[in-house]
Amino acid sequence: MRRRSFGVGMAGLTAATLARPALGQADVSGPLVVYTSQLEPDAAGTVEAFRRRHPGVTVEWIRGGTGQIMTRLRAEIAAGAPRPDVLLLADSLTFEALKGEGRLRASPEVVTTGIPAEHLDAGRAYFGTKLITTGIMHHQRAPFAPRRWEDLLGPRARNQVAMPSPAVSGAAAIHLLTIAQNPALGWSYIERLVGNGVQARGGNGPVMQAVAGAERAFGIAIDYLPIREAARGAPVRFVFPEDGVSAITEPAAILSTVRNVPAAVAFVNFLLSREGQELASRQGFLPADPEVASPPGFPEPRSIRVMPFDAARAAREQEETLRRFAALVGG
């Protein structure tokens, strides 16, 4: 982040616009359209950091839950005019589906130096950019601090648990599929959770707000929101349950209908680069590159237990599982 000293505000904006591109990057220019499920300030920060690196590129972006973005993209594909060049969405399942339809461009030229192979698609169609786990958050005034997933089934958690809707949040969809695959929890756990009055609504942001706002004592949510907000003083805590968290890698991909290949590749390169990974860490995400330090508030990455997840099986069961869940919660 060489030009950080320019600071924020209009001065920084002008300076960054006037600054000359670094050597060897002068060829990257033109418009780039990004669809992302990152929250507004994170997406803005990522785009701005990229723009400082490549001032010639004008990034137009739009944010929404993975489900909302995919609905929009599907409509655009149906109309024959998909607008985005790059997708940065929560989970690999979404990308598997798009890849199966031939909607993703294989991009072997993307530089993946520090990223472990398990976070990358073997066909180089999509690239994991960070680790986002789903665990339990609770309000400071909650009746107890949960330690295991079963704790959310007790009478003291009745009508007190919020979770994101898997129709909106890609992380929530993966979480649901992971729980369903886990022999120790399975569908009976999901049924008992719904029976105990879990409220599924919106994405992870609203769950964070519901718990921080004390409308609900507990939330099933992604790790970085509560950890980051707790550091700012929000009355919430995040727990990595003893029996494991579910995890997603927030992959980035270039569409096969991409209009600006150099800029799209540069954007994905940036996300995977040391600089991009450090930015992710500063924003409060666990970076995909193990060499980059975890953000404050996270436990030692090796101490986090991740529940096993069979992606191929999940891809087969996704539609049925989400439909079954929607029927269960009456949405």
Binding site: V8, G9, M10, G12, L13, A16, E40, P41, A44, G45, V47, E48, R51, H139, M208, Q209, A212, G213, A214, E229, A230, R232, G233, A234, P235, V236
Partner: peptide, 25 residues
């Protein structure tokens, strides 16, 4: 600074205004 925090002179922050007006936002 974050939802759920009680407001006082010590906790009040202009951070959200800065985030709203940050470049790229």
């Amino acid at each position: 600074p974050a939802t759920g925090v009680e407001i006082s002179l010590a906790t009040a922050t202009m951070r959200h205004f800065a985030a709203a007006l940050a470049p790229g936002a």
